[in-house]
Amino acid sequence: KAKLLVLLYAFVATDADTICIGYHANNSTDTVDTILEKNVAVTHSVNLLEDSHNGKLCKLKGIAPLQLGKCNITGWLLGNPECDSLLPARSWSYIVETPNSENGACYPGDLIDYEELREQLSSVSSLERFEIFPKESSWPNHTFNGVTVSCSHRGKSSFYRNLLWLTKKGDSYPKLTNSYVNNKGKEVLVLWGVHHPSSSDEQQSLYSNGNAYVSVASSNYNRRFTPEIAARPKVRDQHGRMNYYWTLLEPGDTIIFEATGNLIAPWYAFALSRGFESGIITSNASMHECNTKCQTPQGAINSNLPFQNIHPVTIGECPKYVRSTKLRMVTGLRNIPSIQYRGLFGAIAGFIEGGWTGMIDGWYGYHHQNEQGSGYAADQKSTQNAINGITNKVNSVIEKMNTQFTAVGKEFNNLEKRMENLNKKVDDGFLDIWTYNAELLVLLENERTLDFHDLNVKNLYEKVKSQLKNNAKEIGNGCFEFYHKCDNECMESVRNGTYDYPKYSEESKLNR
């Protein structure tokens, strides 16, 4: 008799109507990190870190770059004969040098303040090359056809396309004075040089004057150069050297050249137009028929994500570079809930034993079982409120962090190594801060989002509990077992918050 009662009780308990509160689960393989956990499985997430590029040089917003090819900045601007293909260059979106560009200054020497000139050019998007001192009329008392084997072109001695090597005419090199007034309405880049012979005999042979000088002056520039005559090792078949100089001439300003020898005179100059998204990159990537809004030396990035880990040097509207390998923000729920887990921000989770793959029309909802059958029903209101809140948060985070910009490298010469090392340390410090901030932001927001979901499920549970009161009992896994019969209409009233407690209280009292 006792065995019969136990079996009867078990049958009745199993047959009781139930309603459970749960949440969506799926077959997603997404994982995120939080402050407290690593690799948390979630139903949905968004990636904030771009880690792919196309490996190509592309047009930037429809404008092609200027590819210097086998030449570098120095060779292009001075007019190395091997860089003749660059003479027609007028406009570009950015400038590309190759790491091993070999054609710079063909006659050995240095372009002074080269690093600063590169910085200036990094904001130039177009130029006009014009004859600042016409070759045939500007130097009537001097020979202007100086050439050298060091600047050979097609097997013949030649010289820079933008400079003139002035030497004596006959047996004399009379003092020369020439000036140019900038009437271009924009900055003009003027380049010139000073020749330093290897011996007094060479000085006399070329310029006749043993104590020659070169003077260059404008409103913002004033220097006097004296040739340094000295024996030097042979470089590119030359014992002599040429140093090259430049200045930016403001609109309306005048530049005056005065010399008694050794002047490498300007022939062509450049009127410059600035462009905020221009820059110089060093890259071996090849040019393709493609378009982008962000270019790196590795390749083009076409992404609206706020961060990238491809390269710190970028041109155009680019994500911020960070050292992170993963920045994924959760938008959905835990896919593998932890039992009795309390989140960092106070939300209680884990009283549900598992997510439901059968509930596909919402994030949170119900599963019921009664004599009429069983089924899932999503709670659309709480789901939609959660979707709206999380979507707004993700968009806000992306908008705040998605300050796209150009980031170019800084140039230092060989004598500025300590400054370069200090600059690298400062840049590394800023990069570490950006990386830390980005990672911390994602970790915190992921923790908040998961706790937010847990709290929403808990609130749904409490909503049902407050309606049923003692007409049902909690069975410990997020479910309630009714003390009365609850048909589909009754189940719907529980879900929509209109459950009639008094209607079922007498039946429940008897069954309790």
Rank of each mutant, 00 (worst) to 15 (best):
A2T: 08
K3D: 01
L4Y: 12
V6Y: 12
F11K: 03
A13G: 05
T14P: 14
T14N: 05
D17F: 03
I19D: 10
I21D: 14
I21Q: 02
Y23A: 03
H24L: 15
A25R: 00
S28Y: 05
L36K: 01
N39H: 09
V40W: 12
V42R: 06
H44R: 02
L49W: 07
E50I: 08
D51P: 03
N54I: 06
K56Q: 08
L68G: 13
G69W: 00
K70R: 10
K70E: 04
N72W: 02
I73N: 01
G75W: 09
W76I: 10
D84E: 15
S85W: 03
S85E: 14
L86P: 08
P88F: 15
P88D: 11
A89W: 05
S93K: 01
S93W: 12
I95D: 01
V96G: 04
V96Q: 07
E97T: 09
P99Q: 11
P99W: 08
S101R: 04
E102M: 13
C106K: 08
P108F: 01
Y114A: 13
R118N: 06
R118Y: 15
S122F: 13
S123D: 12
S123F: 09
V124D: 00
S126P: 00
S126E: 13
K135L: 13
E136L: 11
S137G: 15
W139Q: 03
P140R: 13
P140Y: 07
P140I: 10
N141F: 02
T143R: 01
F144T: 07
G146A: 12
S150G: 07
C151F: 08
S152W: 01
G155P: 01
S158A: 14
S158H: 14
F159D: 03
N162H: 13
T167R: 06
K169C: 06
G170V: 06
G170H: 04
D171V: 12
P174A: 12
K175E: 07
S179L: 09
Y180W: 15
K186F: 02
K186P: 00
L189A: 12
S200A: 15
S200E: 09
D201P: 02
E202K: 10
S205I: 11
S215N: 07
V216I: 13
S218Q: 12
N220W: 13
R223F: 07
R224I: 11
F225G: 00
T226H: 09
I229K: 08
A231K: 10
P233Y: 05
K234F: 11
D237Y: 01
D237C: 01
T247W: 12
L248E: 01
P251D: 11
G252Q: 06
T254E: 15
I255H: 00
F257G: 00
E258D: 13
A259L: 12
A259H: 12
A259E: 02
G261P: 07
N262H: 03
N262V: 01
I264S: 01
L272Q: 01
L272G: 00
S273D: 09
F276C: 00
I280F: 13
I280M: 08
T282F: 09
